[in-house]
Amino acid sequence: MQKKAEVKALLELANHHATFAVDQTLKTEGIIDLVEGEAQTRFDRRMEENGGYHRANNAYLPSADSVTTDPLPFVRYTIDFQNWRTDLHLRLRYNGITLLFEQAVSGTTRPAGGQLRITVITEQNEALELAPKTMVGPSAVVVAYVDERPFLPLLPSHSFPVVSVEELKF
């Protein structure tokens, strides 16, 4: 559980830093939207500074000082200015190496903010439902999947999804 909390804190710090990458031109028009390239760069920088991770495609590779010992696959998703009031169900699949985005299904519109649900399907086709979250504005979502081999062959491995949802800063 401590490892899960540490990975969650690492993702939240990096995601918070990434949410400042809003499009300044659109912001003057009252539209809050993320500049994806800048957001990813900011996220990568914080993952390296705070956790010693380096990105390789859609995974973060740990250093000797990182919390995890195996690569940390992830998916980023942005909920924009026009859609944050609509319920959203994200479905992801972990295939043993990569965390893949499968689908996003929109639902009911709620004036106070839509409900975000995330399901991760494991290699064994087990559906892991993360706790639902209510969106309070346009948001950056990052889901990572920790899948670590045990230190000793007799011990169980550690496998679990972690999510960070941060409102875009404006």
Rank of each mutant, 00 (worst) to 15 (best):
residue 91 R to Y: 15
residue 61 L to Q: 06
residue 50 N to L: 12
residue 114 G to R: 09
residue 121 I to W: 03
residue 65 D to T: 09
residue 55 R to M: 08
residue 113 G to T: 14
residue 74 F to W: 13
residue 87 D to C: 01
residue 108 T to W: 15
residue 58 N to P: 12
residue 99 L to I: 00
residue 88 L to I: 04
residue 106 S to D: 05
residue 82 Q to Y: 07
residue 50 N to G: 13
residue 142 V to S: 06
residue 99 L to R: 07
residue 158 H to P: 05
residue 52 G to W: 00
residue 102 E to K: 02
residue 78 T to W: 11
residue 116 L to W: 00
residue 143 V to P: 02
residue 50 N to K: 15
residue 56 A to Y: 10
residue 128 L to Y: 00
residue 63 S to N: 14
residue 119 T to R: 00
residue 87 D to P: 09
residue 161 P to T: 01
residue 57 N to C: 11
residue 89 H to V: 07
residue 74 F to H: 13
residue 163 V to Q: 02
residue 114 G to D: 04
residue 138 P to S: 11
residue 118 I to E: 05
residue 61 L to A: 10
residue 170 F to E: 09
residue 101 F to I: 02
residue 122 T to Y: 08
residue 163 V to S: 08
residue 62 P to D: 00
residue 62 P to Q: 06
residue 89 H to T: 14
residue 138 P to D: 10
residue 63 S to K: 08
residue 158 H to W: 08
residue 60 Y to H: 11
residue 123 E to C: 12
residue 117 R to H: 11
residue 123 E to S: 15
residue 70 D to Y: 01
residue 163 V to F: 10
residue 124 Q to C: 09
residue 114 G to W: 07
residue 64 A to V: 11
residue 165 V to Q: 03
residue 148 E to K: 11
residue 121 I to M: 04
residue 50 N to S: 11
residue 53 Y to H: 00
residue 60 Y to E: 11
residue 159 S to N: 02
residue 61 L to H: 14
residue 94 Y to E: 02
residue 109 T to W: 09
residue 98 T to V: 07
residue 59 A to K: 05
residue 142 V to W: 06
residue 144 A to K: 15
residue 122 T to W: 07
residue 140 A to T: 06
residue 71 P to N: 10
residue 50 N to P: 14
residue 118 I to H: 02
residue 59 A to D: 13
residue 151 F to S: 12
residue 46 R to S: 06
residue 158 H to V: 04
